[in-house]
Amino acid sequence: MTCPYYQDITIPSRYPHAKAVEDRIVLEAQQTGYDEESIFALRLSLEESLTNAIRHGNASDASKHVSVKYRITQDRIDVVISDEGSGFDPCSIPDPTQPEFLSRPSGRGILLMRAYMNEVTFNSKGNRVHLVKFRNHQAGSQAS
């Protein structure tokens, strides 16, 4: 049995480049037969993680790069996104569903990733996130 390789793409910190990568991964997942709900979850989590990498990690500096590694199999989708920023502590982000934060226009990316993917893990520095979506597996309880 062969183990599929991770595809490895590096892009400048620009939304059109990120969108092209997102479209490529989503298309491959569709061609691998993932259902509409999984595709929506994948697209949403890619949007959130790529936006965070460009906006917060690399401070929208186009000279800095975002690395995207992904692997799509019949059973699971893995995506690893890294930026060149100094990282952050995911636990330091306040819960955006609390009444005092509800009208803040930002700060929902991690909540959405955790709700729609099956696994979301950050490295200790906080500049790399690993997203996992299993086929036919109910995602986080908050989205159900």
Binding site: L44, T51, R108
Partner: peptide, 9 residues
């Protein structure tokens, strides 16, 4: 589709 960016707007 909307992401958190759309929600922010």
């Amino acid at each position: 589709f909307t992401s958190s960016l759309g929600l922010g707007a």
